[in-house]
């Protein structure tokens, strides 16, 4: 099998996509946002609970999409729970560079290792938007709760 394909659809990714973490709704969400990829019709809704100290106390997401978008959303929610908004923003910035094959900047080595499972996407430019949909939606949820789009 094609190595780049194996890297893209490695077991961690398929596991996340088949058994997404934090999948569902948050009834007491403080921030929500909807993301939409108009090219493929994929949609994601992100629910956040940010506490008084600016920490992401809980996250959930709902949506339908390809393995890449679902795995990316699942991985992201897993990594962002418990972090401050500022920490989350830094991680998101790093991820968005990483999937485009760019320098991800100064990330914590553990974070870097976890994000690296998504790095294979950079070999598939047509699929980068799948990987970033959830992250852009998260950004919208943190900022204003508006609809995010990846095009």
């Amino acid at each position: 099998m094609d190595d780049t394909l194996r890297e893209l659809y490695q077991d961690v990714i398929l596991d996340h996509s088949k058994h997404p973490r934090h999948f569902g709704k948050l009834v007491d969400a403080t921030n929500t946002a909807q993301g939409h990829n108009p090219l493929c019709g994929d949609r994601v809704t992100m629910y956040l609970k940010v506490d008084a100290s600016g920490r992401i106390a809980d996250i959930a997401f709902e949506g339908k999409g390809c393995a890449i978008s679902q795995a990316s959303a699942s991985l992201m929610t897993d990594m962002l729970v418990g972090r401050t908004v500022a920490e989350a923003e830094k991680l998101m910035g790093g991820f968005l560079h990483l999937v485009k094959g760019e320098d991800a900047g100064d990330l914590d080595p553990d974070d870097r290792e976890r994000l690296d499972v998504m790095a294979g996407v950079s070999a598939f430019p047509m699929r980068v938007k799948c990987a970033t949909l959830a992250w852009h939606t998260m950004k919208s949820a943190l900022e204003s709760g508006e609809t995010a789009k990846t095009e």
Binding site: Y9, G65, C66, A67, I68, R127
Partner: peptide, 8 residues
């Protein structure tokens, strides 16, 4: 998903 299939 159609996109994963199309990529393969």
């Amino acid at each position: 998903h159609a996109h994963d299939l199309a990529t393969v």
